[in-house]
Design a protein around this nucleic acid. Sequence first.
RNA 1: GCCGAAGUGGCGGAAUUGGUAGACGCGCACGACUCAAAAUCGUGUUCUUUCGGGAGUGUGGGUUCGAUUCCCACCUUCGGUACCA
Length: 923
Amino acid sequence: MAEYNHKEIEQKWQHYWAENKIFKAEVNPEKPKFYVLDMFPYPSGAGLHVGHPLGYIGSDIVSRFKRNKGFNVLHPMGFDAFGLPAEQYAIQTGQHPAITTEQNIKRYKDQLKGIGLSYDWDKEVQTCDPKYYKWTQWIFSQLYNSFYNNVSNKAEPIENLMAVFEKEGNKNVKAICDEDTSIFDAIQWNGLTEEKKALVLLKYRLTYPADALVNWCPELGTVLANDEVKDGFSERGGYPVERKKMRQWMMRITAYADRLAGNLEKLNWSESMKDMQTNWIGKSYGCELDFKVADKNITLTCFTTRPDTIFGVTYMVLAPEHELIDELTTSTHKEEVDAYVQKAINRSERERMSEVKTVSGVFTGSYVINPFTKEKVQLWVADYVLAGYGTGVVMAVPSSDDRDFRFATYYGLPVKKVIGGTEDLEDPTEIKYGKMINSGFITGMESKDAVLATIEHAEKEGFGKAKINYRIRDAVFSRQRYWGEPVPVYFTEDGVPHLIPEDELPLELPPVDEYLPTESGEPPLGRAKDWVYKGKYNYELTTMPGWAGSSWYFLRYMDATNEKAFVGSEVVKYWNSVDLYIGGTEHATGHLLYSRFWNMFLFDRGFIFHEEPFQKLVNQGMIQGRSNTVYKLKTENTFVSLGLKDQYDTIELYADVNMVYNDKLDIDAFKNWRAEYAEAKFILEDGDFKCGFVVEKMSKSKYNTVTPDAMIEKYGADCLRMYEMFLGPIELSKPWNTHGIDGVAKFLRKLWGLFFDYEGNFLVKDEKPRAEEYKALHKTIQKVEQDIESLSFNTSVSEFMICVNALNQLKCHKKSILENLLVVLSPFAPHISEELWQSLGHEQSIINAPYPVFNAAFIQEDEYEYPIMINGKLRTKIMFSLDKQPKEIELETLKNETVLKWLEGKQPKKVIVVPKKIVNLVV
RNA sequence: GCCGAAGUGGCGGAAUUGGUAGACGCGCACGACUCAAAAUCGUGUUCUUUCGGGAGUGUGGGUUCGAUUCCCACCUUCGGUACCA
């Protein structure tokens, strides 16, 4: 072969890999395993752009590297195939979402294969495949059949709980359950009807139906999880979201809040990612305190993290949604309170958010009694108190809480200062901690000690207890949509839910005539004809959310075709948890929390053997678009180059980045782009038409999308892979700019040139390398190996360039050098490496070639050129033998001509000689 | 507001535990080859300069013989989160 022909080579090797199942991963206890995982994509209609594969290329390099290093590597890919876009498209066109999804998946797979990624496609999973979602439904069933035991601190079968109920009721049970669960004994339990028993058990199950205040998105016709809502709008589509009470399946993730937060410490994740999860879980230590309502037989419990400020409580506040509001409102205030509550509840999330700094509230007419001081304070309703957090009741301490202070100031409520140092302050909330003042028995204590003292006192007196509170809420699991996993549940006439038995799974998605809600407002599944269980029981009509299928796919990959279990236990024992997981930050509080939850649950129940699914997590940065702009005169069909545009009255328009090179417009291509530009005139500068640029999101409407296909067509997959890595550290976001890719293309041609000359003559000879050649090679082996371990792929690419430049300079065509270099390069540029590897006479794929062993002897230097600095400024350099003693170096330096000139006859005060680093003279 | 990450040439970026700032590449300039162009190769390329130097890693200070690196304060950008009691 005369010239480097990427197209031919890449197709050849991609076929070879696929036909010979080179990347097939099978359990092999003889070999150490390594599991490299990419976050699996939702196959959108637009296909991949060059930003998507960034992480895939990085993980592919690690996978291939580990293979060369002797590991048994599991590196799978699949598709998160249920989802809104396909369904929205189905609503518009009537086409079944499965068809669109299949087409999109095919396109994605073609694109991924074109990049030469080393996936074991036999392990592919698609969440919308009934063979897959059978097991998603099975896991749902396991959750349904489990409760969380606070004593063993893990999930257990619900039968364990039932056995205890039969023996002694629930009075000694320490388990996670609904707040409103009442206490009963064995006699009461055993006396309950089956229906009643079932309803009680729902309060304990890890998945359960409940009336919950949810994020309802009318535009999408479904509820959304908290992490799917951003600033009051749906994350997908950007439609407004409102609060609504609906009956929903919920997941009791709160049972795992503590372990999810605590385990983070053990994980090799970025600090920012751990922080995001920690904040989302929002664990806070404090206590619950009971306030009796004056003249009423009601006790309100509030949660506070600052019980030390109890003597500063000057009023109390309820959330507008609080269920006792009617009872707590006196007749004289009824009208006002009702009006306020109505307004507050109807206010959309969005409005509430935009008015964060304004305060509003009304007095209920009732008073509560501070259990510590016996003081009567006013009870208010205000929407700054959230129903969903704590108990929906807040003790207000305006002297140490900003919001309380703002509220009290606005409504003229008293402020009582309880922390030392705040006595004379205008705004006492500036100081949050100190010595307590005006605080009864805790006066004089430090706030920290006072917290403990007050809790102790409250517990002794029986009106409070220490409590850990979490911000995280149970996750809404129902979606009022069609394109998702059916929930494997039917309802008997009494409304009690029952699981579809395991051997009848999967419960397949039935056909419907339209992908819209029914007339009566039921989800689309309500349209399915004759879709009833055993001919008489109604099925659950909501489907599972997107995160259901993605919460366990990493387990299914291990054993993708197992029909007896979601994953075989020997298999999961071997592959265990993911060693390296690469994906975007956007999944920090959704997918990464839910999958940890499900994994932990499956671990508790003994189905798998690792508590945490992802040991090391790396977030790849986003590749932003880099749009090009051109400037058209407002009144004429004439465009003006960037540098001259200020002399004219222009409007800015996009030019497709694919017809701009180094910000210079290809005018002919531009004229052909659109009919209205065919006759356009151009005002050039220095003979070129220069475009402006803007960095923004990559999208079709901005004409700044670049597809991997286009890059591969022109430069080849190896070039694209290396260039993407060369752009910078994998975790950094950066704009895509095709300009630099030529550098990598040149590198590949130079590499090729070490093997073949222009006529296609094979140049490689089996000769003994010289010291410089060994040095160039081993420097590269060392650097690249370190870089891959730390995922610094960008510097590896530089190193390869340096090495090939050096070998070119040395005119090195020696087999033993080039052979090793190819193995080191192969994870980055696998196709060209395979081809050249074969040209050296190898019959086996380079994928299994052993990684060269770095030998420090080859890069050993015996001399070093010391930079000589005088007062920290570099003045000259002197070569010294590395075994020369510092004292000798000092003496010789002081004799050096340049040094003497700079010393101007003065004697240096101090001479610092750092071996193999530097010499610094202080004058 | 709070939490986190990041600020280095015209551009992407490099610099191991504090030790020659700007590796590697793009772009640009000049040169070679060519009738010419492309490709390729070579040289130069932080700024400034009176060609001795001087300044320089967001800003201001500090520690040090020596700071892109460590400490303090601040500014900017990006990501997350937000009446969370």
